[in-house]
């Protein structure tokens, strides 16, 4: 199972790098979504894949009973997903604004902040 997830992570990263190398910033964003999912899976698999019940403590007990899954990576992944969601929403709005104000989605054409030649006048 670890090997399968490792391969999945590899494929995700490869696909996202391909997308992120594109000049179109929208493709870049999609690549970013893929690679952030790859990172989340990395955390998930780094916490060891065990077959176990949800780590909930039954009523009346002092601790979880029997084999339970490691809850920490799940908490980390959840936090990372939430943060990633916020960043993605922001980046998407930014790209939209870029398209409507700069009129392009191609990173090669975005030279307003750094003009090719220094304006001498």
């Amino acid at each position: 199972m670890e090997a399968l997830i490792a391969i999945t992570i590899g494929v995700l990263v490869a696909a996202s790098v391909y997308l992120m190398l594109a000049r179109n910033v929208l493709r870049f964003i999609f690549g970013l979504v893929l690679i952030s999912n790859a990172a989340n899976l990395t955390i998930f698999v780094a916490g060891r894949l065990t077959e176990g019940a949800p780590p909930l403590i039954p009523v009346g007990a002092d601790g979880p009973v029997g084999d339970v899954a490691n809850a920490l990576p799940q908490a980390l992944v959840l936090t990372a997903i939430v943060i990633g969601f916020g960043l993605f929403a922001f980046a998407l709005v930014l790209m939209f604004r870029a398209y409507s104000t700069l009129g392009t989605l191609y990173s090669d054409d975005m030279r307003i902040a750094e003009p090719r030649t220094e304006d001498k006048t």
């Binding site: 916020g86 929403a89 709005v93 409507s100």
Partner: peptide, 14 residues
């Protein structure tokens, strides 16, 4: 609040 501010802002831009 934050989801609604993002969505409303995007809706109004488009």
């Amino acid at each position: 609040g934050s989801i609604l501010s993002i969505v409303f802002a995007m809706e109004e831009e488009i």
